[in-house]
């Protein structure tokens, strides 16, 4: 009995913590902003639980059936204490305490000036994908976000169509992506790791599937990744027939550095590095969420589609290094 008790005591918190983990868990923070928010939560959770239990116990006690009333004087005293203490001072006091913690916490999340200028990343949402642009390195990618760990990053978010919201729960709060506006969200990953970004504002049919991996690298790894994205486009020209087939069928919507400039769909310059089965996606995307305006390529001969996909895959893969 005693052993069982001990075991429960030892493992219960672990179980509890395990229940709090997850790829998008705000309770498993991996950056300072998310860490602050999680701390705020645990503090508020404890106080709120105490208040709930206290009020409920008071209430049940007060409700016990009885035939006697408190003496009038005592009753008046109690009433005044309850209303002023519980109704006035408790919420006021709680708010003051909450703001005392909350205002500095909120301040620490703002994109204020820092000694080391933060990395700027521009994320633009569409129904239902993300374009990610690194203005300094002139790199554009889609549906994946890479950032250096241990360094503040300013994500400049906007939208080309409806309102979306950019959110990497394990790194910090969310920020709406509003057409015509650019909002800035300061994020920072404490350690390298892979996280998940999720669209948090309802944006239509594909909303549930609008998420992307977020990878935090060490600084050297990040620089290496960035350099890879900037690779010379020469090799794409090596097979002119396929390049021109791509130009003919895909370039209206897709950019491919050195080949085409289309802007309606994702930039495919590094598509091979994010997706290993381009042909599979091209033939099956109509059956899979999220919905996309990409055509189902029925007008292309199966062989030609496979050739283009294969060429695209080879010429955009990450090099083996």
């Amino acid at each position: 009995m005693r052993i069982a008790f001990n075991t429960v005591f030892k493992f219960a918190p672990l179980l509890l913590l395990a229940a709090c983990d997850g790829p998008q868990s705000t309770l498993q923070p991996a950056g300072p902003a998310a860490h602050t928010a999680a701390l705020l939560w645990w503090g508020m959770f404890i106080v709120a639980t105490a208040v709930t239990v206290m009020v409920t116990v008071f209430w049940l006690w007060a409700m016990r059936p009885r035939e006697t009333m408190l003496p009038a004087l005592r009753a008046r005293q109690l009433q005044k204490r309850l209303i002023i203490g519980g109704g006035l001072l408790l919420p006021l006091g709680a708010s003051v305490v909450l703001l005392a913690f909350g205002i500095p916490a909120g301040h620490s999340m703002l994109p204020l000036a820092t000694d080391e200028p933060p990395l700027r990343i521009e994320v633009t949402a569409r129904q239902w994908w993300w374009q990610v642009h690194y203005p300094e390195a002139q790199v554009t990618t889609a549906n994946e976000l890479h950032l250096p760990a241990g360094r503040p990053v300013d994500v400049h978010v906007s939208s080309e169509d409806v309102i979306h919201s950019f959110w990497v729960p394990r790194l910090g709060g969310k920020m709406d992506m509003v057409p015509g506006r650019v909002n800035v969200l300061r994020l920072s990953a404490a350690e390298p790791g892979v996280f998940r970004a999720q669209c948090a504002e309802f944006c239509g049919l594909g909303h549930a599937h609008m998420h992307m991996p977020v990878t935090a690298h060490t600084e050297p790894d990040f620089q290496r990744w960035l350099a890879q994205q900037q690779r010379a486009p020469d090799e794409r020209q090596a097979e002119p027939a396929l390049a021109s087939a791509f130009r003919e069928h895909c370039s209206e919507c897709h950019a491919l550095r050195g080949v085409s400039q289309g802007g309606a769909g994702p930039d495919l310059t590094t598509i091979g590095a994010r997706r290993t089965d381009i042909l599979g996606w091209l033939t099956q995307h109509a059956q899979q969420p999220p919905p996309t305006p990409a055509p189902d390529h029925g007008q292309l001969a199966p062989g030609q589609l496979a050739d283009i996909a294969d060429w695209l895959q080879r010429s955009t893969e990450a090099p083996n290094d």
Binding site: M69, Q79, L82, G86, G87, L88, L92, A94
Partner: peptide, 26 residues
């Protein structure tokens, strides 16, 4: 938004005080 907790709190504790100083039947 936090201030709106005050009037709500007053009502909750006024109800509590009513029960406490009354003779409740269930």
């Amino acid at each position: 938004s936090m201030m709106v907790a005050v009037p709500t709190g007053i009502q909750i504790f006024a109800w509590l005080a009513t029960l406490w100083t009354g003779r409740p039947v269930f």
